[in-house]
Amino acid sequence: MTLDGGWYLTLAAVLFTIGAVGLLVRRNVLVMFMCVELMLNAVNLTFVTFARMLDDIGGQALVFFVLVVAAAEVVVGLGIIVSIFRRRGGTTADDLHLLKG
């Protein structure tokens, strides 16, 4: 059975949207973080699908760059989360209220 590339692109777009909406509506910082990862992986799926459709290896190579950058972001992001929420029980973004105006 073969599936048209459009289906993969649609799936990627849906995943990206779920990630983007999740980032904006969820209040738990760790869940927001996972939403970013979901968005990046949706982009990876898009890259691979386009590479297959265009018959071009370049798109698949780009995925590696994205993976590396996502890993680096995870390291820094988790470090920031730990440093800020170490002294508190939960990890909700509503606790961040010092800066406003």
Partner: peptide, 16 residues
């Protein structure tokens, strides 16, 4: 630290 957190979340969002 709060600035770092906000910058990180929105920066990662914009990068994506």
């Amino acid at each position: 630290r709060e600035a770092a957190m906000k910058y990180f979340v929105l920066g990662a969002f914009s990068s994506a």
